[in-house]
Amino acid sequence: MDIFLQQIINGIVLGSVYALVALGYTMVYGILGLINFAHGEVVMIGAMVALAVINALSGTALPGPVIVLLGLMVAMPTCMALGYGIERIAYRPLRHAPRLAALITAIGVSIVLQNSAMIIWGRQYITFPPLLPSKPHFVAGAAISDLQIFIVLLAALIMVGLLFLVHRTRLGRAMRATAQNAEVAGLMGVNINTIISITFIVGSALAAVAGLMVSGYYGLAHYYMGFSLGLKAFTAAVLGGIGNLGGAMLGGLLLGIIESLGAGYIGQLTGGFLGSNYQDVFAFFVLILVLVFRPSGLLGERIAERA
């Protein structure tokens, strides 16, 4: 039982990481209907910038959490500017072009960001200095660290903040209006370009948080880390219903738990025929199954057949 509990804890923490990145995908998708393939790379840049600051300060007498916070203070505006720039340069000119065109520029932006990071920070793994407490607590035989608890809480907090922003503020109303119908929203006095820019900026600020969190949690960052993380997060967003904030959270948590339980129990489930090497197969299988029965994800709105 303690093993099962441990797997669930593992899954929830991993899922919170996915969810945080997935929120960025889903925000942009909700407004523009665009898969922002470069979001994973923005997360990577966030991690890299934060780590550069943190590593520069880690020798000083400042307490650990302050250094980490300072790293975030630099990484966040950097990512926000980056997100704004990406939208301005690579997506805005293509807003009325074929949708796949923006997908290709997104891939191009990914490649450019990856290789720029490689040139700036080098090809090595960059390590996170041991500033954060990682002592495990044992609850009913299962281990959980302060950092893990913090990650789950932070993801939940950001989620609540975003829901408040989207559903309770003027800005959020404008966002929702733009998502519903950009043209009509424009006619109603919403400055669509500003709204879209803000969406990208908020999404990228989240990416900076996610990047810092991922690199702090796993202890390292690399210029290539954005790709697989982005892929997983994107899968999570689709699982939950892309475009839906709650869906991203649910999808992320579910994907994390599915992966954990998959890796942990797939051997027993298949009588030892399949092992943890089929962990991703298991995750994708669940995703496909969900989409076959709910073609727009768990919380996604059902898109009616066009009339």
Binding site: A97, P98, A101, T105, G108, S110, I111, V112, Q114, I119
Partner: peptide, 28 residues
Amino acid sequence: DLRMLIFGLALILVMLFRPAGLLPSTIR
């Protein structure tokens, strides 16, 4: 260092200047 960077830039530039592709199909 530069090779893939230029490749990525080329992808972006081509799409920005020819959003429907270099030789688009008219119906498409």
